[in-house]
């Protein structure tokens, strides 16, 4: 977890890269290559039957039973507003342990294909360029340039933290208190 020293301030304002040298698990999403700090990765599993959870954002695919543990699955394509494709043989789930505001949670990230584990040196990492308002660089720890390829190093904690699942299913707001309950409450306050 200490691999992400800065959780304050945005990437643009910093001269030092947020990404650190080390091992990264790279995977493919559409035609783009991404990297994930290996320390966050718990395991990689093939696609299994996912149970949908209604009333959650479209990028939450559902939940799976990972050897008795219930784990939510985030569809990264949907999260990044890429077009939906059918799952293939290569589609798999990377189970990560992410530290979010709600504490450490295990979550599955659905990706097109897992590529390899890369050892990335500090001099191969650059800060993401300013893309303008269209692209959210908050998710990006840095850009890794290895040989001729470019790997986008993801800040998975941030990605998951912005998965505001509750936004859709907000059933709070007790405006509809039962009549009976109200009456009792009133009486209670009278008694006091």
């Amino acid at each position: 977890m200490s691999n992400t020293p800065s959780s304050t301030g945005t990437a643009e304002s910093q001269l030092v890269t947020r990404a650190q040298a080390g091992k990264y698990l790279t995977f493919r999403l559409n035609s783009e290559e991404y990297g994930l700090e290996i320390l966050k990765v718990r395991e990689i599993i093939g696609l299994i039957d996912i149970t949908q959870v209604p009333r959650t954002p479209h990028y939450i695919r559902g939940v799976i039973n990972l050897r008795g543990k219930v784990i939510p699955i985030l569809d990264l394509r949907m999260k990044f507003d890429m077009e939906a494709t059918d799952d293939t043989e290569e589609t798999c789930i990377i189970v990560v342990d992410a530290s979010t505001q709600k504490g450490t949670i295990s979550m599955g990230v659905l990706v097109d294909a897992v590529s390899e584990v890369l050892d990335i040196q500090q001099n191969e990492i650059e800060n993401p360029p300013a893309f303008g308002s269209g692209v959210d660089v908050d998710y990006i720890l840095g850009i890794g340039k290895i040989k001729d390829t470019v790997k986008i190093l993801l800040d998975i904690d941030r990605v998951l933290d912005t998965c505001d699942i509750s936004a859709f299913g907000d059933v709070e707001g007790d405006q509809d208190v039962e009549i009976g309950e109200e009456a009792i409450n009133e009486q209670m306050s009278e008694n006091e």
Binding site: G68, V70, D170
Partner: peptide
């Protein structure tokens, strides 16, 4: 019963997940 964890804690209409005989999760 399995807890769905903090991710779904705002979904008050689900009290948890149950693992069905086929290994899938039923809400």
């Amino acid at each position: 019963i399995k807890s769905l964890g903090s991710v779904f804690e705002d979904q008050k209409w689900i009290s948890g997940g149950a693992i069905l005989s086929n290994g899938r999760i039923g809400l």
